[in-house]
Amino acid sequence: MNAETQNSARDHTNNPAPDHTNDPAHDPGYNFAYLDEQTKRMIRRGLLKALAIPGYQVPFGSREMPLPYGWGTGGIQVTASVIGADDTLKVIDQGADDTTNAVSIRKFFRRVTGVKTTEKTAEATVIQTRHRIPEAPLREGQILVYQVPIPEPLRWLERRESESRKMHAYAEYGAMHVQLYESIARFGRITTTYDYPVKVADRYLMSPSPTPKFDNPKMHMNPAIQLFGAGREKRLYAVPPYTRVESLAFEDHPFEVQEWDDACALCGDDKSFLDEVVVDDAGTRMFMCSDSDHCRDRRAAGHRGGAEGAAAEALAAMTGGTDDGSNKDRAEDWAKDREAAQ
């Protein structure tokens, strides 16, 4: 049947699963993937319901995790519930693999699961993310796990959960349109730039987590499985593959994504999401890709941006990433490079 071949999800054969207990990479002091089995089952049930009701927030019994709320406890619990020994995990924070949050979460999962980790989007089977969706297109079977701080898109309009729940139940989303309209009335345009509200499968209003609105179009009809976890707020939600995700807008004020006058100083890309970086005390600024893997891929393919010499090398080092988590002080490296160049 073509449905099976069409599906690039892993082949679920009945081969004996690897024995994790003897895996030296997995700390035997913890259950595989840290969570106990009862908790995983609860989250797994919640995830299946979340997929069956796209965009609806499923309440779950979020657990204490060995890091504070705000550091991705929801995403970690989702990842811990789906990950298996033969997965390859990628973790990004603001698009980069080598920032503090990403490094510590990657280390955590390497310790409690022993899985392979990667910085390459194409190699990963599970990608946990904070604030970005990778530039490289995702494929069927890949799982994108979002860390979500505030899952409720109506929270700043209606503080009472009892009320916002009713608004979702009756698809009563006029207030959100009013808020966007007020923004147009005051500023002449919709000023929301991140966590831009979307409607999923023409029904639920959903917060895409604080991703830049630049990434909203990537959620639409994406072949991958998108799962969201909010630890402090105790909510799970999902966007199934090939699902309509529409950013709210008006006919005369259509949805638009950010654009830059510059291109990435390293790889020259003028299509990707750019970060602005101050490179010296004189306030010189440069733009570079927020997605470090995307930028490295392009440089490897021979693309070059405007930065030259020491500045280019320093910037490249900043996006280089060290997978062992031993993040050197890059600013120091860069200062040395600068001195050498002068």
């Binding site: 599906n7 004996p16 997929l51 990950i83």
Partner: peptide, 19 residues
């Protein structure tokens, strides 16, 4: 292996529910 077995079976269910 209840841990690895249910994880693997769940991924089958997750893929089935997703597609």
């Amino acid at each position: 292996d209840p841990i690895a077995g249910s994880q693997d079976a769940f991924r089958g269910l997750l893929a089935a529910m997703s597609y």
